[in-house]
């Protein structure tokens, strides 16, 4: 409509009218000196490992701002959909920007509680994992700056673990390390849980060498691995330390274990 009315333009010999819509210079153009940065990194590390009938999630309890330690006890592990009657079988761990982590946890928790209220049964880990992905992706252009790991038991009672990137890509895995010391812990887990680079001695030469077969580890062994992973990460990474919180999910409930780590 407007294009029809404007066709031909106004004759120049008549009294003029200003129709120029050339945009006025806006305030936001030009370089900005000091912009507000809505993110920070609160350090710390998390990890998750699954077994045949359990899942373990772990995280250190240190919270940092740069070289400062904010507090020595700020848990990164949360029971999701917990009504205070220990019915929950899902655990979320978040590491990265703690404020986003908390907001994410609260949203997922509210959704899982509403699901139980509306359907009269608890949400499965699989469904919860998919929902967490959509929550993260909904903020694709202003992401929750966190690396999340979700753990629980699947419909067959097997340990289930899902890991996420900040914008919602996710994958079910056997084990995953995240956060500041992820690059220190993950190779250790690859070797000790998935037996990467382990071969059966004298099973052949060169490419004939047989890799060691993966087996699902007993709970006690995994607890040992997790503690070793964190004591070692504490030695090598300044943002990791103070305390280790482990949540072990089995069909009987969620067991919590706290072990002190070095505080330096």
């Amino acid at each position: 409509m407007a294009s029809i009315m404007n066709a031909g333009g106004l004759p120049s010999d008549q009294p003029g009218y200003s129709f120029s819509n050339a945009s006025a210079p806006s305030e936001s153009s030009g370089p900005r000196q000091h912009a507000f940065n809505p993110y920070t990194d609160n350090g710390g590390s998390t990890l998750g490992v699954t077994g045949a009938d359990f899942a373990i999630l772990a995280g250190d309890t240190r919270s940092t701002s740069g070289y400062n330690i904010n507090t020595r006890y700020a848990p990164k592990l949360f029971r999701i959909g917990d009504d205070g009657d220990s019915s929950s079988r899902i655990v979320l761990s978040v590491v990265g920007f703690a404020a986003d982590g908390n907001a994410l946890k609260e949203r997922l928790d509210a959704i899982v509680k509403m699901y139980k209220y509306q359907h009269g049964k608890p949400m499965s880990v699989k469904a919860c994992a998919q929902r967490l992905s959509t929550i993260l992706y909904q903020k694709r252009f202003f992401p929750y700056y966190v690396h999340a790991i979700l753990g629980g038991l699947d419909d067959d009672g097997k340990g289930a673990l899902y890991s996420y990137d900040p914008v919602g890509s996710y994958e079910r895995e056997q084990c995953r390390a995240a956060g500041a010391a992820a690059s220190l812990i993950m190779p250790f887990l690859d070797n000790q849980v998935n037996y990467k680079n382990q071969y059966i001695p004298a099973s052949g030469t060169g490419h004939e060498l047989q890799p060691r077969a993966i087996e699902s580890l007993p709970k006690e062994d995994v607890i040992g691995l997790v503690k070793d992973a964190f004591t070692s990460a504490t030695e090598r990474h300044i943002e990791v330390g103070d305390g280790l919180q482990m949540l072990i999910i089995t069909k009987d409930g969620i067991e919590e274990i706290y072990t002190p780590l070095k505080r330096d």
């Binding site: 809505p38 993110y39 920070t40 609160n42 919270s63 701002s65 400062n68 904010n70 507090t71 020595r72 006890y73 700020a74 920007f97 703690a98 404020a99 908390n102 907001a103």
Partner: peptide
Amino acid sequence: LGTTFSSPTLATGFGAHLAQ
């Protein structure tokens, strides 16, 4: 930023370096 934490002793700003 909305970051929260709790501790038996806390100090903000310069205090985080000198007083804490």
